[in-house]
């Protein structure tokens, strides 16, 4: 706590014509924002998510089951000629032993997994160098936001850099993760301070990285992934 703290605070109190601390906070009841009372995972929400995601150049897809997703990954890697694939340690990847299965199915691909990677500053830098070389990363979503085709990830279930450094980023999700609006997601996550469930980083991703800084020309893939794929896998709980 530095000396300017009191200076700045007393300036503010003077400006607001307040003698000091101890004033009760004025609590205004603003009421709830109007939100669509819709059940998560409904067919309409799934449709809306896909439409919004596609609009911003995301690549949404519905898979009937995990087998279809695995096959999809195989085809994606072959079609794009990806040589290096990075897997996150997210529960959805672990649950289906995705690392093992991809190792069998894609023997020519350099497969790297965060699973078992030590959580330390030194390993973080090594991992970053690995990930910067990756063509594709595969992670799992926490929530999907239908209104804007957005994927939400948390730093407690995958690393931050795995969704950021590779050229393409594939997020695996389930239908029950699709929510109508952000307020509903916050409620579900338990972001209120007394619940204390907010991870160090909660990240919203909407489509690929983009810029329009040169003559307003839209370019995909500024600093983050050039491709952003979201696959919603049915038959998953």
């Amino acid at each position: 706590m530095n000396a300017s703290r009191e200076v700045v605070l007393s300036r503010i109190r003077r400006a607001l014509l307040r003698p000091g601390t101890g004033h009760g906070r004025e609590q205004r009841s603003l009421g709830k924002a109007r939100s669509t009372p819709e059940h998560t995972g409904s067919a309409h929400l799934l449709e809306q998510f896909q439409e919004e995601s596609a609009r911003v150049g995301g690549e949404p897809r519905l898979c009937a089951d995990f087998e279809e997703a695995v096959e999809g990954i195989q085809n994606l890697v072959a079609a794009a000629g990806y040589r290096r694939v990075a897997l996150s340690d997210h529960a959805i990847c672990r649950r289906h032993r995705l690392a093992l299965r991809l190792a069998e199915l894609l023997p020519d691909v350099n497969l790297w997994s965060e699973e078992g990677e030590a959580h330390s500053p030194g390993s973080r830098r090594r991992n970053a160098a690995q990930l910067a070389q990756a063509d594709l990363s595969i992670t799992g979503a926490e929530f999907l936001l239908a209104e804007s085709g957005t994927v939400l990830l948390t730093s407690s279930t995958s690393s931050r850099q795995i969704s950021l450094l590779p050229t393409a980023h594939l997020v695996l999700a389930t239908p029950d993760q699709v929510y109508p609006d952000l307020a509903a997601i916050f409620e579900q996550l338990g972001t209120a301070p007394e619940e204390g469930r907010l991870p160090a980083a909660l990240t919203m991703i909407t489509g690929p990285s983009r810029t329009a800084d040169i003559e307003k020309v839209l370019i995909k893939g500024a600093h983050g992934p050039v491709r952003q794929l979201t696959w919603i896998i049915g038959g998953e709980a």
């Binding site: 911003v56 160090a200 990240t203 919203m204």
Partner: peptide, 15 residues
């Protein structure tokens, strides 16, 4: 945009 490509909500350093 309906939403920008990225929104980072950061609460303190790495946990």
């Amino acid at each position: 945009q309906r939403q920008t490509s990225y929104v980072s909500m950061i609460s303190g350093p790495r946990r």
